[in-house]
Amino acid sequence: MSGLPHAPFHILLVEDDPADAGLAKRAIREGRILCDVHHAVDGVEALAYLRREGAHHAHARRPDLILLDLNMPRMDGRGVLAEVKKDPDLRGIPVVVLTTSDVQQDIEAIYQLGANSFVTKPLDLQDFFSVISGLENYWFNIVKLPK
């Protein structure tokens, strides 16, 4: 539609904090693997995007990976995770929870809900870039994803 060729991989970034989102988008852009990113600011918008609900989501692309923050207004990451993992169409999309929390109970609950990975955002920028880069490498290079 835009005439531009699609990037090989598509990432849905669900993050309410613009600063964090900006950093993540920048890290993805600087990564070695060509990805494009859709940013949803909360769980409700993320689910609408995934289900192509609403006019401006009609042509939404199915993401190859979801980067999901936990604490958000309206619907938090746990809610999004639960919805995605019980939806047969969406269940196959890997969900990486990317959060500041490292509380053990959070981690266990998230895996119980079916998250594919739980990653604590590193404080250091370089480390954060490395984590994003590592995630891209793992999910788009090392493992095989459903088509």
Partner: peptide, 17 residues
């Protein structure tokens, strides 16, 4: 408070880069 502090630190680092 950790969230904005982390953002501040990260963006400062970004500037450094």
């Amino acid at each position: 408070l950790q969230e904005p502090v982390r953002a501040m630190g990260s963006y400062a680092q970004l500037l450094q880069r």
